[in-house]
Structure formats: C-alpha cells, structure tokens
Design a protein around this nucleic acid. Structure first.
Length: 425
DNA sequence: TCTAATT
C-alpha cells in the first residue's frame, strides 16, 4: 500500500476551516495519498491548523515538499504553508537555539557562521511582528553530531557588537520545555495557580477554575502577596493528584464543571512544585512518600496508559486556555453556560449596572470576540461583574486582571472615571 | 533570547 521508506509529512499553516476533504485536492497532484489527518484537540475537537500527510510513494512526499513548502499561503493565513517531514521522522536533537546575536544579523550571516560545522537544513532569525530581529535564531543541522560540534565551537566564542553577552549556542527547547515556558508566562499573569487545574476538565471550566481560584486567593490574601510558604507540601499535592485523576475520568470532562470545586483545592499554591514534577526533577520527602513527579508517571497503577497523564492534562489545560482566549469566537462556547451564574443573578447584574463611585471598572483592549459572557467569566470571581459592591473588590480585580494577556493584547483595567470628572479631551 | 502548529 505504501513504500517501506515513505515519509510522513507535517503540514502547517492550514486555515482552521479546511478539513481533510478540502486539503486532498491540493496534495493529490503529487501522488496517491496514503493517509491525511487534520490535527484536532483531544477534548474540544478544535482544528489545530496543521495536519499529517503520508503518500504511498516516498517520491511524492519529496515532490510535494519541494513544490509547496513555504511556496504558497492558504487563504486567511499570514504565513506560507509548511510541508516538511514530521518530527516523528527526524533522528534526534539537531536544532540549535542561537542567542545574543546582533539585531542586524540576517539569516545569511547566521548561515555563514554555522556552515563550517555541517549541513544546515534550516536557518531562521526570530523576528517580531514588525520584522525586527529578536537577536536570536534557530539553526537545524542534518545530524545531532554536527549540531553538537557547532555548540562546542561557537557557544561563548564571541560577543556580537551590541550584544550584552557572548554568543549563546545550545539545543533548542523541546516541546515540554516550551510548554513550561508558556506555563510560566501564564503564572506571571495570574501570579499564582493551583494544581487542581490539572483535572481533566474542559478548557472552559479550567478557565473558570483558574478564575475561581484567583478569587479565593484574593479573598484569602486580602489583596496582599502570597509567599512560597503557602504552597502545598509535596505530599498534599500527591493526594490531590490522585483524587483528581481517579475521581474524574477524562471523558467526564464537562460533567462536573458546574459544581463548586472541592474545598481543599481552593487553598492557594504556587506553580513551582508541579513544574518540577513535570520535568522530572527528583524530590524526595523525608517521610519516604512518593514525591510530586511520581504521581504523574507511576503513582497510579490503575490509570490506563492510553489515558492522558496529569502532566499531559495540565499541558492541555494551558493550551486550552490560550486557544480559548485567542480564537474562540463569541457564541461558540457551549459548555460555558454550565459555569455561568443562574439567570436570577444575571438579571440582578443587569439591573445593577453601575455601583457606587470607586467600584466601577473600565476595561480597555478587550478582544472583539469577548462578549458579555466571557467578560463575566473573567470578572465574576471578584464581585458583581464589572461593577462591584465595594471598592476592595474593584481594586482586587484591577490587581489581578490589569495587564492580563489575551491573544496579542493586554487588558487595561482601571477604575471608571466618575461621571463629573474633567475629561482631557 | 526559544517560532506556529507535531497524532
């Protein structure tokens, strides 16, 4: 049916409205397709904007890559289509991250720098939306050994004019590391979070949980800062993890989203323990109990290996929050209804649109797709919608939500100006 | 200073 040495291709930059049947004609011109699969989110079924493609003939894959990779931009996309061997086809780590470049250095400059150490398959300077270099690049060699030799020769070897320290050459982050990086960014936005979000909930209720926890934290801390001493000990994390996984199979993801979280998960925690568990950094409790990382890997013998681990689910949850905030259009969030307040509360909120002075917020830079429901989801934990019944709640909401990043934007949350205040324009 | 996505 297919060649023994067939190449599985990764297809990127596909508009999210195109399914297999829509993509088939584009790829069929290079040969008979063995398999074409659009990647979907495990839980939400959401199109991930990429696909895997295997031709029956190895030659077809090569032809398709040569003809299409970066050669054509599909409607609605801002970057050209990607057609290249999937990660699963590649042998080992051979992609380098290059940091501390001069912002004037181009792909060609970087290529020349690395050329002596092997065959370069890919060389990209990272650029911001404005096209300016971020002072770093990715360089992919054909083998791990070549990449390693470039590290040995170039890392720290020189300081580029204008760079603040010597050249950095190292293997690029793995996917796991990238996920952790993103998680840490989110932690920066939330300040704090609770491992209970590792529950295999839908992304919507995960989001709501994050918000509820934030509210609990605000209440618990009276607006002050939490210290690391408030984090859970690893043993307690272990209990929580076990409870989460055993109590809530992945396919029940929306069944509990309308409930209040169990009391013990509203206790604040910081992210560090779970991140360590994630990366497999060993921790051992003096009492000999298994530490955090164990619960993800082998602490739960009854948990099927085909089901996601807590670590996977956590990763999923973060991805989901980002996807949710980035692209979900208003009106498509069916499960969100389960976490919305009861109708009577909504009416109450509608009746009391504005609170006393000092209790009303004005929110700038809200994404287009954020309707009242989404807005309410975000601010409900802090009080009655955007108007609060006390200034402390309003301040708490500002503290927590000002600067919160949604997609490309950051919210600006301020006290609404009193009606009679003088306007600058 | 770690891309945009990798079953």
């Amino acid at each position: 049916m297919k060649d023994q040495d067939a190449i599985k291709l990764f297809i990127g930059q596909i508009p999210r409205n195109l399914e297999e049947k829509d993509l088939k004609p584009l790829f069929e011109q290079f040969g008979k397709i063995h398999e074409l699969t659009v990647l979907k989110d495990r839980y939400t079924g959401m199109h991930k904007g990429c696909a895997f493609l295997t031709y029956c003939a190895r030659e077809s894959a090569i032809k398709a890559q040569n003809a299409l990779h970066e050669q054509k931009t599909l409607p609605g996309m801002t970057r050209p289509i990607q057609v290249k061997p999937a990660d699963s086809e590649s042998r080992g780590d051979r992609k380098l991250f290059v940091g501390m470049l001069n912002k004037q250095q181009t792909e060609e400059d970087v290529y020349r720098l690395f050329e002596p150490y092997g065959v370069i398959e890919e060389c990209t300077v990272l650029r911001g939306p404005d096209g300016n270099s971020k002072g770093c690049a990715f360089v992919k060699f054909s083998t791990h050994a070549e990449a390693q030799s470039a590290i040995s020769a170039l890392h720290g070897s020189q300081t580029m004019p204008g760079a603040s320290s010597s050249l950095v050459v190292k293997f690029a982050d793995t996917d796991k590391e990238r996920t952790i990086r993103r998680m840490q960014q989110m932690v920066g936005q939330f300040g704090i979070f609770n491992p209970a979000i590792a529950l295999p909930f839908s992304t919507y209720s995960t989001y709501a949980h994050l918000m509820q926890q934030q509210a609990a934290i605000m209440a618990a801390s009276h607006g002050g800062y939490l210290t690391p001493s408030m984090a859970f000990p690893a043993t307690q994390l272990h209990q929580m993890g076990a409870l989460s996984i055993n109590g809530l199979p992945p396919n029940s993801m929306t069944s509990v989203s309308g409930d209040s979280p169990p009391a013990n998960i509203t206790t604040p925690s910081i992210v560090t323990p779970i991140v360590n568990g994630f990366t497999g950094i060993p921790h051992h409790q003096p009492n000999g109990h298994p530490a955090v990382e164990t619960m993800y890997s082998n602490g739960l013998p009854s948990y099927s290996t085909q089901s996601p681990t807590a670590a996977d689910t956590l990763q999923q949850a973060f991805t989901g929050v980002q996807q949710y905030t980035a692209i979900y259009p208003a009106g498509t969030l069916t499960p969100i209804g389960q976490t919305l307040p009861q109708p009577s509360q909504v009416i109450q909120q509608q009746q009391q649109r504005e609170g006393p002075e000092g209790c009303n917020l004005f929110i700038y830079h809200l994404p287009q797709e954020f309707g009242d429901n989404e807005l309410m989801q975000m601010f409900l934990p802090f009080g009655r919608f955007v108007s609060f019944d006390n200034p402390a709640s309003a301040q708490a909401a500002i503290q927590a939500m000002n600067g919160f990043q949604i997609g490309m934007k950051r919210l600006k949350v301020q006290l609404k100006r009193p009606k009679d205040a003088s306007r600058p324009y």
